[in-house]
């Protein structure tokens, strides 16, 4: 059973520099061939400063920084029992190569269903750029199979 004391917990910020080769790798991994996501000139022609980060890419920030693993350790959720229940993004502005994104999350709810067979952890995050501008709000529901 996940300790409810973690509701309200603020996680350390995770900083992710948006890099061109990483975005090209991500595009390859998801089968994205639209030149806007892989070719600098096509991105500029489409009105972006450089390659844009695709809609779900910012989820990488806390994974790269080890913040997600730290949370799972704190909450004592083994990787083997972890599932992703829901994911949401609300967008305010885009991030492109050259930007540095910081994701800051808080645990906003923990609850159980099916007599505790499933436990849910709700994490709300804000992603900002190096100018402090809000890029996106993220909402993640993690599921622990007990």
């Amino acid at each position: 059973m996940i300790d409810r004391k973690w509701i309200g917990h603020r996680m350390p910020p995770a900083t992710l520099p948006i890099e061109r080769s990483r975005l090209q790798f991500f595009a390859k991994a998801i089968g994205e061939t639209d030149p806007v996501y892989v070719d600098h000139d096509a991105a500029v022609q489409a009105g972006y400063a450089d390659l844009p980060a695709p809609p779900t890419f910012l989820f990488a920030a806390e994974l790269d920084a080890g913040v997600t693993n730290r949370l799972l350790d704190d909450l004592q959720i083994p990787l083997a029992r972890l599932l992703h229940g829901e994911q949401g993004f609300t967008y305010h502005r885009m991030a492109c190569v050259g930007d540095t994104v910081t994701v800051q999350s808080s645990i906003t709810d923990i609850y159980a269903k099916k007599n505790g067979a499933l436990e849910f952890v709700v994490k709300d995050s804000q992603a900002t750029n190096q100018l402090g501008e809000l890029l996106a709000e993220l909402r993640t529901v993690l599921v622990c199979r007990n």
């Binding site: 489409a46 695709p54 809609p55 779900t56 994911q87 949401g88 885009m94 909402r139």
Partner: peptide, 20 residues
């Protein structure tokens, strides 16, 4: 997400939610 960005420029996206 690719379905969306193949349809409109990503800058038009305001929300995107998924239930697994």
């Amino acid at each position: 997400g690719r379905v969306l960005t193949a349809w409109v420029p990503q800058s038009r996206l305001r929300r995107f939610d998924a239930r697994f």
